[in-house]
Nucleic acid binder design. Sequence first.
DNA 1: CCTAAAACGTGATTGAAATCACTTTTTTTC
DNA 2: GAAAAAAAGTGATTTCAATCACGTTTTAGG
Lengths: 242, 242
Amino acid sequence: MKNSLCGKKTCTMCGFENCIRSIPLLSNLSVEQAREISEGVQSKSVKRGEFLFRQGQRADRLYIICSGKVKLLKPQMDGKEQILYILSEGDFFGAFNLLKEDRLQYDAIALEDTQVTTLEKNEFDKIILLDPTITLKVFEKAYERIKKVENLVARLSTSSLDAKVAGLLLTLVEGFGTQVPEGILLSLSINREEMGSYAGIARETMSRKLKLFEEMGYISFIGTKKIVIRELKALEMLLEDA
Amino acid sequence: MKNSLCGKKTCTMCGFENCIRSIPLLSNLSVEQAREISEGVQSKSVKRGEFLFRQGQRADRLYIICSGKVKLLKPQMDGKEQILYILSEGDFFGAFNLLKEDRLQYDAIALEDTQVTTLEKNEFDKIILLDPTITLKVFEKAYERIKKVENLVARLSTSSLDAKVAGLLLTLVEGFGTQVPEGILLSLSINREEMGSYAGIARETMSRKLKLFEEMGYISFIGTKKIVIRELKALEMLLEDA
DNA sequence: CCTAAAACGTGATTGAAATCACTTTTTTTC
DNA sequence: GAAAAAAAGTGATTTCAATCACGTTTTAGG
């Protein structure tokens, strides 16, 4: 029941400066500056499973997640998908493509009912000039992305199935995890198929390996969508040694 | 027999401003500014196979390649390596870690005899303030990196062997390729093992698939280290459809 | 130029995860 | 709350690339 970053009460179209300034990326804008760009700002709701955009579309807006989660993925030739990133509240995407005037490189699909604020390219260009801290924030996000995707490469390229699944679980902590007395609770909004797709393995293999991890006492299940990581150290070990 | 970017004749230690200003990244510096940072500048030669740095080391310098090639890789648990990037003349690395005061995330090994100019962190911090175009160049490099590594993910995650090898060849064009009448000539300074490691497959599999591509007429060999891509379109097709 | 070492090619074999096929469970929706 | 649809679990089977093993070629170095 947490509040949306874009201030639900007054904001259906996100046209008020007190609204967009509550978004971390835009928090340094003055009231004037915020008003200046307010015309290019839109708020959009998407239901679980819906596309925000598709690969190949023109990159003409910046997307900022106010609530919910979004996966960015590349469709594969064989009809499967490779998830590249899972993004949460406060994350933004589309910016890098905007700056390079490129086409969008992936599909964006909501994992939950999601609220996004979008900003038109020309307004984005404006505020980047107005507020130098935004460039910095975009740069930091770029660095974060590089680390995430390099991490993904490590996961995909290891030959050890244990390491793939352990690595996935650890990756999911950031994004789905909360500390609980028993360890770390993952409240997932992705299914086994998607977990497999993020780790580069088949759904069935994911199921089986998770079950083994449970038998080892590393994790435990609450239903299927909640996983408690009980032995974080054990999982981290699986990443280091064969 | 091309000239080094850092101006061989006058430069053994790269301490002269006419030298470092010939490096694209630093080309916008004034003579004064260049002189200011000259103390933090060093030139270094590494032979093929030698390490420039190792994963886990403190990130305290920026590396700019003047001539030669460098691979950045992550050692895997099973003793193998996963190549993340192959960088050439004009590319720089270590900068992102510098800015985030991080540890270096990979090993850097010279693929050929390589000349690098390095810049100490504190001098780098100085010039980033002096010359705003440098920030921009670093940002562009970051974007380039993201694209490269996302591309790598696509290669690793496809189930099609054809697509992996075709994708690798296309990736190698940028970096090793030159246009010739018959198509694109790749003059490789990596061996089959490394090609495999970059594509996420075994050496033997790489050999066999390249041979098949030759039989198909897509490529032809001149010795083992030179490959002519004759049917670029055919390779591109392999990436798109199963 | 010769020798040793590294890189490469290639057939045979193996193995681990993908796939298939089906049941059970969970979730959605009407 | 029942029916339908989606997701998940699980055993059996297949498949395709990894591995093994070894001969050959190329490269490096004294």
